[in-house]
Design a protein around this nucleic acid. Structure first.
Lengths: 106, 106
DNA sequence: AATTTGCGAAACCAAAAGGTTGCGCGTATA
DNA sequence: TATACGCGCAACCTTTTGGTTTCGCAAATT
């Protein structure tokens, strides 16, 4: 099963998990307590997140703490860049247009 | 069928379509020619993209031109912001650390 | 040592996704 | 007017997804 980060963030529960463990590492049970779902379901989500390296785990005794690989999130940012270029250009164009109108008014 | 933008970009073909029509409006056939897929498959993707308002259409005779609603892409950017804060903070911390080390060397 | 707790993994299931094929409706072209 | 073209839509099929249940293992607690 090939995983990629865009598929990983497609699920709303997974996005919530990501936001949750971004701030502090948590165990599957602790994560599940934050949602209306079971540990097993969370476990499956964590597996998917781990597969695409969005999440790392750290064993402490019998507990496993999951935390976000924040750097991986930059991949989304990187993909978005091509569009950011476009919307910034359009903004500039609008800016120029407004400036031109202003100038004409004088 | 509830659609959201994260689900829309989960599919690699849809991401490719988005990138394609970001630059210029295109018809379903023209889009399909760029990939190894059929018009009908593209049509289904376009429908999903339209449902979550990521794409707009303009009829010209019997052709329908699809183009990207670039502003909608900002929603992803907005979601990413919470994580950008984190990775920028970490970067600052690293920055401070390096500065401290540098200072100690003097 | 026996029991409880935290966990991943596997088997299973319903629902959704992504694709194909065939259709009908307009618009262009002959 | 007949034919070709561009398109959306519905029916259908296979694969994937997200969830539950059950299990076994290892670590903690009694």
């Amino acid at each position: 099963m090939r995983r990629d980060i865009f598929q990983a963030i497609a699920d709303p529960t997974r996005r919530a998990i990501i936001a949750l463990i971004a701030l502090q590492a948590m165990t599957p049970n602790a994560i599940a307590n934050n949602f209306d779902t079971t540990r097993q379901a969370v476990s499956k989500h964590l597996r998917i997140l781990t597969e695409c390296e969005l999440v790392k785990q750290e064993q402490k005794g019998r507990e496993i703490y999951y935390s976000l690989e924040i750097d991986k999130m930059k991949e989304i940012d990187k993909w978005l860049e091509q569009f950011r270029k476009i919307w910034e250009t359009r903004f500039d164009q609008l800016d120029n247009l407004l400036a031109t109108i202003k100038k004409q008014k004088k």
